[in-house]
Amino acid sequence: YKVACMCFSAINGSGPAYLSELLHVYTPSRTLRSSSDTRMLEIQQYKRKTHGFRTFSCFGPHIWNSLPQDLRHCSTLSSFKAKLKTFLFSQYFHPN
């Protein structure tokens, strides 16, 4: 929940600048069906499995990209938080 909220703030420019610098918008090298989604983040590679994946620049985009598209395109932080809670509760109670 916290990581997704931090990613939302960083993408929309309301978060700290040092977090915004760690996240990069994914731009595909050719036209794909997923190219219409402008809120996908580029997942950076990491060298060590034990420490690299825990960094915000790797874990943040992984969490962000796993969210549904309508959730990533929310306009305000309050609507994002409300939809995120609903999504996470539905994932927990109905893990289909």
Rank of each mutant, 00 (worst) to 15 (best):
Y1L: 13
K2P: 04
V3F: 00
V3W: 00
V3L: 13
A4M: 08
M6W: 06
C7F: 01
C7D: 01
C7I: 05
C7L: 10
F8Q: 04
S9Q: 15
A10K: 12
A10S: 15
I11V: 15
I11T: 03
I11F: 04
P16T: 04
A17K: 15
A17I: 12
Y18F: 15
Y18E: 04
Y18R: 14
L19G: 07
S20C: 11
E21L: 15
Y26L: 10
T27A: 06
S29Q: 04
S29R: 06
R30N: 01
L32P: 00
L32W: 02
L32H: 04
R33E: 03
S34V: 08
S35K: 04
S36W: 00
S36Q: 04
D37L: 11
T38H: 13
R39C: 09
M40N: 01
L41Y: 00
L41M: 08
L41Q: 03
I43S: 00
I43V: 13
Q45F: 09
K47D: 00
K49F: 06
K49I: 12
K49G: 00
H51Q: 12
G52Q: 10
R54N: 06
R54L: 08
T55K: 15
T55R: 14
S57M: 08
C58G: 02
F59T: 06
G60A: 14
G60T: 03
P61Y: 07
H62E: 02
H62L: 05
H62F: 09
I63E: 00
N65D: 04
N65H: 06
L67V: 14
L67F: 03
L67P: 08
D70V: 05
R72F: 02
H73F: 11
C74W: 00
C74H: 01
C74K: 05
S75R: 01
S78R: 13
S79N: 09
S79A: 12
F80W: 01
K81A: 03
A82W: 11
A82E: 13
A82F: 10
K83S: 13
L84M: 06
L84Q: 07
L84R: 08
K85N: 07
K85G: 04
K85M: 02
T86Y: 12
F87V: 03
L88I: 12
F89N: 07
Q91M: 12
Y92V: 11
Y92F: 14
Y92G: 15
F93S: 14
H94Q: 07
N96D: 13
